[in-house]
């Protein structure tokens, strides 16, 4: 389950894991995951030049190849 995967990764990166939440929006061809973290933790999830956010997206899309659906990760701030 993609929501579970994102939560697991993000919770292990941030300082305030309790404030991590993922909202799933199921579309026909794609699933959108809206990620919310504590405002101090946004930088940790995005990383320099978005490196960490990109790595999370790569892992997500690798995992999503089984389901056949595109998964989009949006980081809300």
């Amino acid at each position: 389950m993609e929501k579970d995967l994102v939560e697991y990764i993000v919770k292990s990166l941030v300082d305030k894991p309790d404030e991590v939440s993922v909202n799933v929006i199921e579309g026909e061809q794609s699933t959108i995951l809206e990620l919310k973290v504590a405002s101090d933790d946004v930088g940790k999830v995005i990383g320099k030049q978005g490196r960490i956010a990109n790595a999370i997206r790569v892992i997500l899309s690798a995992s999503a190849t089984k389901g056949g659906k595109r998964v989009v990760l949006e980081i809300l701030d």
Partner: peptide, 11 residues
């Protein structure tokens, strides 16, 4: 994918 896993593991 290996690089992405490695990056997260390093953080």
């Amino acid at each position: 994918n290996l690089d992405a896993i490695q990056l997260i593991a390093n953080v």
